[in-house]
Design a protein around this nucleic acid. Structure first.
Ligand SMILES: [Zn+2]
Ligand SMILES: [Zn+2]
Ligand SMILES: [Zn+2]
Ligand SMILES: [Zn+2]
Ligand SMILES: [Zn+2]
Ligand SMILES: [Zn+2]
Length: 288
DNA sequence: GAGTTTGAAACT
DNA sequence: CAGTTTCAAACTC
């Protein structure tokens, strides 16, 4: 994979990094029918090419009907993956049509050498934090105000930048900051700061099991943050001109998201309690 | 589920 | 490069 290192050919080095089954041969890019990416050991990918969260094993099945999953219209193809358990019709994005598929990849690649590179920069990779987690090409939205998932920036949960050519954008960094959801993602390891009642605060015995109940984490801070998130959601829904029912639906989602984070803190507290039966102190490395 | 809306990708 | 068409997903009801 790394037998070619030519400084003046950045495209190929990128391609070899992103698509191991591509090889350089003479002045051409040649696709070798090596192991398909989906069969290669562990594709530990956190984000797909569009910046969406992508659980390594699972992938949203496509429903392509006219592209044969051999154009970038197909998300599977665009992610450099084979179709598997998809609902596509007349799919050629598989080993049966490997040759045709390789030709299609090559075709897309010569149209745009960056075609299979992630559209959204990976979020800080150790020392190399140059790659911003922002859309590299920018969106061109006209009617969604960049407030719906039609917008690739919004879908990837990143702010629009000057690279975008969107009209009436409501997804600027400033816009996002008044929506709270992104500003205060309640860290699941927040501490309880405000005692709910004085009795309980001075109860040494109950402190062992009380932390395993969700309501223990309903501190003022958490309640306030949750409320802020909901208000931010209302704000966003109003900008979208959403109907009341859609607004309520969105609010339910937001509230559920907050509740899950609170519950997550509960779950971690339970784990800590289990660990503390053997250890006096828990080091941060125990948590993860 | 049916029908509409949307903007990237493809095409001219 | 710009204008148009095609396409599959996002969205609405
Ligand atoms: Zn497909
Ligand atoms: Zn597919
Ligand atoms: Zn397919
Ligand atoms: Zn946009
Ligand atoms: Zn944008
Ligand atoms: Zn925008």
């Amino acid at each position: 994979m790394s037998q070619y290192h030519e400084e003046d050919e950045p495209n190929y080095s990128i391609m070899e990094e992103e698509m191991p089954y591509l090889k350089r041969e003479d002045e051409k890019t040649v696709l070798i029918s090596a192991q398909p990416p989906s069969l290669i050991p562990p594709p530990v990918i956190e984000f797909d090419s569009a910046g969406r969260k992508s659980a390594p094993g699972k992938r949203k099945p496509c429903n392509c009907t006219r592209s044969q999953c051999l154009k970038l219209y197909c998300d599977c193809f665009a992610n450099g993956e084979f179709c598997l358990n998809c609902n596509c019709k007349d799919c050629h994005n598989n080993l049966e049509f490997n040759h045709e598929r390789s030709r299609a990849i090559k075709q897309s690649l010569e149209k745009n050498p960056q075609a299979f590179k992630p559209k959204i920069g990976v979020a800080t990779k150790g020392i190399n934090s140059d790659m911003e987690r922002l859309h590299q090409k920018g969106c061109h939205c006209k009617k969604s105000n960049c407030l719906k998932n039609y917008c690739e920036c919004y879908e990837a949960k990143v702010a629009c930048t000057d690279r975008c050519k969107c009209r009436t954008c409501r997804n600027t960094e400033a816009d996002r900051q008044v929506r709270f959801t992104d500003r205060f993602p309640m860290s699941s390891d927040f501490d309880r700061r405000t005692p709910i009642s004085e009795d309980e605060a001075e109860e040494p015995v109950s402190s062992k099991s009380v932390k395993t109940h969700p309501w223990y984490y309903l501190t003022d801070d958490v309640v306030e943050t949750t409320t802020m998130c909901l208000l931010g959601q209302v704000h966003e829904s109003e900008q979208k001109n959403e109907s009341t029912s859609e607004t309520i639906k969105a609010l339910c989602g937001e509230f559920g998201s907050c509740l899950l984070q609170i519950f997550d803190a509960t779950r971690k507290a339970q784990q800590n309690e289990l660990l503390s039966t053997k250890k006096e102190y828990i080091t941060p490395s125990d948590l993860s």
